[in-house]
Simulated scan of single mutants.
Amino acid sequence: MDRDLIMIALFAALIAALGLIPSVTLISGVPISAQSLGVMLSGVILGARRGAMAAGLVVLMVALGLPLLAGGRGGIGVFAGPTVGFLLGWIAAAWAAGFVMERTRRLPVFAAGALAAFLGGVVVLYIPGIIGMAVVLDKSLAVATGYALPFIPGDILKAVVAGALATALHKARAGALMSRA
């Protein structure tokens, strides 16, 4: 139990720290940031339950006012902005990445990690993200999807990085991937 709490807190801190990397905000008002890599890694390394808890902890801290999002944003106001769907989607994305990672034990770690990160951090994350943009910006789903398209190549790259980092961790310390325990 103690190890779980420590890892959840550590990965919540990782997600928050990745928000410190300078971001670029597109016309949609949604920034390109490294935080989704942290969400992907949370699921891939911690597994579904713990990964979702790490992402949920960050969402809770943001709601409480901590400026943990890219650009130092935080507080209840971000839940009325165009990023709301992505922010809330972090929990489902981390869970999905962990779920896929837990069920692909026969695949090499890199392939499983990249696949899990892609399915959770791109496919699952973009559903609430696009819906949130459409609602907040009062645009159609098609227009909101168009706004999301520029993010996809970078997020695919992040999924590959997540697979590579999971592989490196697995090679450096057997049993470190809680998603494969």
Rank of each mutant, 00 (worst) to 15 (best):
R73A: 14
V24T: 12
G72C: 06
L14I: 15
A114N: 03
A63S: 13
A92R: 01
G89V: 08
T104S: 12
A70C: 01
A162I: 07
D2H: 14
Y126C: 01
T104I: 00
I76D: 01
S23M: 13
F11T: 10
F79C: 11
G81N: 10
V58S: 06
T104C: 06
A111H: 05
A63F: 14
D2E: 15
V122I: 13
Y147E: 08
R103N: 05
A94Q: 03
G89L: 04
A142F: 07
R49D: 10
G120N: 02
V59Y: 12
Q35A: 10
F86P: 05
S42L: 09
L149A: 11
A92D: 01
G75Y: 12
F11W: 14
W90N: 01
M101R: 03
I27K: 01
A54S: 15
F11V: 14
A94S: 08
L125N: 03
L165A: 03
F110H: 01
Y147N: 09
L125D: 04
D155C: 00
I21M: 09
M101L: 07
F11I: 14
A70E: 04
R105I: 09
L177Y: 05
I76N: 03
L60E: 10
I130M: 07
G72F: 07
A116T: 02
V62W: 13
P67S: 02
P150Q: 03
R173N: 11
L141G: 08
I27M: 07
A112G: 15
I45H: 10
V100E: 04
L18A: 04
G75P: 10
M61K: 15
L87H: 04
M178G: 06
A34L: 15
A80T: 15
T83Y: 10
L68Y: 12
A162H: 08
Y126S: 05
A16Q: 04
V123Y: 08
T145M: 02
F118S: 00
G47N: 12
G51K: 06
S140Q: 02
M40P: 11
R50P: 00
K158V: 04
G129E: 07
A111R: 00
G74C: 13
G65N: 08
S42G: 15
L57S: 02
D138H: 14
L68A: 07
M101I: 07
V44I: 11
V143F: 10
G81S: 15
K158N: 01
I32A: 12
L60Q: 13
F99T: 01
